[in-house]
């Protein structure tokens, strides 16, 4: 029975993930955390782990939740569940209804869905921020925001600025090694996570001890 629930839950998550990657977070919030398969803190940690391991976020989180909730077969159920909607819908579209996504009804539905997803992830961001920076405050209760982790606020501002900065990177050209060209790149998410880990140890392990 649990296996069926796991499959069905992730089938729904796969079916209502509009867009890539983080568009899943609101659905994970609603479906997985309410089942007690994962806590909010575990979800945040897992996002970091998923960023630093290969593969699509969808498969990573499905496998992780499946394994913790139901072992190997649980993981198979959740992963198949999250893949199944893509497989069915895209196969049908590619084989029979090539022009389905040109239909105005589908376009109009997505005209409403895209801003909705922005709102949902925006809310997920707010509630996770409340969890991390305000020690588990609930968004609707202003009183619970009194307990602020100012170090985390500082860290947040620093990391946000860092993620927006562009760095000069030399472009290596094998033909003309003497010609130096630079391109401006943003910091890679994995590097950002490594920096934050070092700062976390510095702040919570050294300064605040």
């Amino acid at each position: 029975m649990t296996y069926l629930t796991l499959f069905w839950t992730f089938f729904k998550i796969g079916l209502f993930t509009i867009g890539g990657g983080y568009a899943m977070i609101p659905l994970i919030n609603a479906e997985v955390i309410s089942h007690g398969w994962l806590t909010e803190a575990q979800l945040i940690d897992f996002i970091a782990i998923s960023e630093s391991t290969p593969g699509a976020f969808a498969i990573n989180i499905a496998t992780f939740v499946g394994t913790t909730a139901g072992g190997f077969f649980g993981a198979i159920c959740t992963t198949l569940g999250v893949i199944a909607p893509s497989l069915l819908i895209i196969f049908l579209i590619a084989t029979f209804f090539r022009r389905l996504t040109d239909k105005t009804v589908v376009k109009d539905a997505f005209f409403g869905l895209r801003p909705a997803v922005v709102g949902l992830i925006g809310y997920a961001f707010l509630s996770l921020t409340a969890q991390v920076i305000f020690h588990g405050a609930t968004v609707t209760d202003p009183q619970s925001f009194a307990d602020v982790d100012f170090w985390a606020v500082g860290l947040f501002v620093f990391l946000f600025v860092l993620s927006k900065m562009r760095f000069r990177m030399p472009v290596l050209k094998q033909k003309y090694p003497q010609v130096r060209e630079y391109k401006r790149v943003k910091i890679h998410p994995i590097l950002l996570i490594l920096v934050s880990a070092a700062l976390g140890i510095l702040v919570y392990g050294v300064i605040l001890q």
Binding site: D45, S163, A197, G200, I201
Partner: peptide, 9 residues
């Protein structure tokens, strides 16, 4: 620290 980085992401 990593949790804060995830918020930024």
């Amino acid at each position: 620290g990593i949790r804060v980085a995830v918020l930024v992401l």
